[in-house]
Design a protein around this nucleic acid. Structure first.
Lengths: 170, 170
DNA sequence: ACTCTACATTCCAACATTGACATGTCGCGA
DNA sequence: TCGCGACATGTCAATGTTGGAATGTAGAGT
C-alpha cells in the first residue's frame, strides 16, 4: 500500500498532527495520491503499532504529534529502492471516451469540449501554484519541482488532447 | 463504479463470454480500467440480477453468453451523459519522485533514468499497436482512435518528462 | 454570552480490489 | 492415452477506499 509510504514520506522532515497530514494530502498530494481523513488516521495508528512512527499525545484528548522513527525512515528507503512501482493507470475520463460511440455525435462533441475547458482550468490553476511557490536549493525542493513539472506537463497534454479530440468529432 | 459501465460498454456491439470480456480488459482496457477475473465474473452476475444484461448458459456448466439489454444500454447512456466523471489521479511513480530526497542522489538518478527507459519501451509498444490497427470510418473506431491517441500522447509526455527529470538530477 | 470556523480524532458500514484457490471442459500433439 | 495449455466459471479472505456520523477543543468576532 502506498498510503503507508506517503505518510512516512511526509513525516521525514517534520513532525505533524493527523490534521496537518490531512491538509498536506489535500494540497501537495491531492493529484498524486488522494486520501481521506478516515484512511489517514487509521493508517497512522497501524504505523505506530508496527513501530514505524511514534505518537506523542499532548493530553488525554486532542492533538497528537506523529513522528518518524529510524525504522520508519529505513522502511521508506527500502520501498523507494527495493520495490517496483506498480503502474496503475485508471482513468474514468478515458473510459468514457472509449464508449462515446453509443451517444449522439452532438453529445460526444459536447463531452469532449467540456473536457477541454475543464483541463484548461486545471492547467491554469497549476501554473499559478507553480508561480506562487518559492524554490530553494535543497534536494527536497528539487524533487518537488520535478514532480510539479510532471503535473504541469500532464495537464497541458490533456488539454491539448481534449482540444484536438473535440475538433475530430466536429 | 466504473467497472459496471466498462462491462456494459464492451457488450454494446457484441455478446461475449466472461472469458472474452476478461481478454478485452487485458488488451484494450488494460491501460484505462484494469480489472481482475474475480471482479468481472462477480460484476456480471450483479448486472444480470439488476436486469442490465442477460446470461444465456449453453449447458449446465461451461460457457455463458452475456448480452446487453435495453435497460443496460439506457444505463450506459445515462452514465455517459448525466454523471460527472470523477478524476482519480493516483500515481505511485510520481509519489515516489516526491520522496526521492531521502535516498542518495545516485539512487534518485538511477530511479529516474530507469523510468525514462521504461516509458520509452511502453511508448514504442503503443506505437506498434497503433500501426497494427486497421481503422475504418465508423464512429466506434473514431472514438477508439481518439482514446488511443491519448495513450500515445501520455506515454510520450511521460518519457520526455522522465528524460528531463533524470537530466535535472545529474 | 453566543456562534462560527478551524482544528482534531475516532468509529463504522458499504463498497472496490487483489490474489489465490478450486473446479471443470476441450482440442492437440507426443 | 496422457498431459498440456487455452478456455471457462466460481468463491474466498484480506486489504484498500469512500463517505458519513459522532465527539470534542480553541480562538476570533459579534
Amino acid at each position: 500500500m502506498s498510503l503507508r509510504h506517503a505518510l512516512l514520506g511526509l513525516l521525514v522532515d517534520r513532525t505533524a498532527s493527523g490534521y496537518d497530514l490531512l491538509k498536506l494530502f489535500d494540497t501537495s498530494l491531492a493529484n498524486v495520491w488522494p486520501a481521506t481523513q478516515s484512511q489517514i488516521y487509521a493508517e497512522l495508528n497501524k504505523l505506530a503499532d508496527t513501530g514505524l512512527i511514534t505518537i506523542a499525545a499532548e493530553g488525554p484528548r486532542g492533538r497528537k504529534q506523529y513522528a518518524l522513527t529510524d525504522d520508519g525512515l529505513a522502511e521508506l528507503r527500502r520501498w523507494l529502492t527495493e520495490t517496483e512501482p506498480q503502474r496503475n493507470v485508471r482513468s474514468e475520463v478515458l473510459l468514457r471516451v472509449f464508449f462515446l460511440g453509443v451517444v449522439s455525435r452532438e453529445q460526444a462533441q459536447s463531452y469532449l469540449a467540456d473536457l477541454a475547458t475543464r483541463f484548461a482550468t486545471e492547467e491554469n490553476a497549476l501554473r499559478e501554484l507553480e508561480n506562487a511557490v518559492e524554490w530553494d536549493e535543497s534536494d527536497l525542493s528539487l524533487y518537488g519541482r520535478i514532480a510539479l513539472e510532471y503535473g504541469l506537463r500532464f495537464n497541458t497534454m490533456r488539454r491539448e488532447w481534449a482540444e484536438w479530440a473535440a475538433d475530430q468529432v466536429k
